[in-house]
Each structure stands twice: as C-alpha cells, then as structure tokens.
C-alpha cells in the first residue's frame, strides 16, 4: 500500500507560538545552540493501487484545501514515495 507524505508548516511570516515555546524549553535546558524552532504537521496517507497522475492530483487538492489552510499555512512538500521518479515534490506556494 503506497504511503504519501504531506508536510504542512505555518506561514514563515507568522508567529509560531508552539515553535517558540519549544525553542524556549530547549534554551532553558542548556541547548544554547538552538536559535529558533518552527513546528508543523506531517500527514502519512495510504492509498490503494498505483500512485498515478489522478491520485497525485487528488492528493494535491486534499493537501491544499483540507490538510492546510492557506490563510495561515503552506504545504511545503508532498512525497509520493516513488524515488525513481524523483522523490520530493515541492508544492507551489
């Protein structure tokens, strides 16, 4: 069963309070090398059958319209899991 990975991140210009809290905790525990953390989401999606162009198109739509909210987030990568075709597909902004 093919697994497709979708990565979603808060928009770079927005404050990311979760990432900021994580960075603060890392600094407090002595990891002074950390200058910043941003926290996003990773979705692992399984589908039946081959990941053909129709499946890719549908997953891109799902990623942009449901898994992310374009007002506050960007889909930064969709990995369709087929290394021979060039693994990482970076979604258009």
């Amino acid at each position: 069963m093919p697994t497709i990975v979708v990565d979603v991140m808060p928009k770079p210009e927005l404050l990311d309070p979760q990432g900021k809290a994580v960075a603060g905790a890392l600094n407090r525990t002595g990891h002074s090398l950390v200058t910043g953390v941003r926290q996003g989401k990773r979705f692992e999606i399984t589908v039946d059958g081959p990941v053909d162009e129709a499946v890719r198109a549908e997953i891109r739509t799902i990623a942009e319209e449901i898994l992310s909210n374009s007002v506050i987030e960007d889909v930064v990568a969709i990995d369709f899991g087929d290394a021979e075709l060039g693994a990482d597909e970076t979604a258009e902004a």
Partner: peptide, 10 residues
Amino acid sequence: EGGLIRNDHG
C-alpha cells in the same frame, strides 16, 4: 476572511 491561530503568548 482570515484565520485564527494560537494565542501569541502561548
């Protein structure tokens, strides 16, 4: 329009 995100103070 717009969106709601986590409070800035966390």
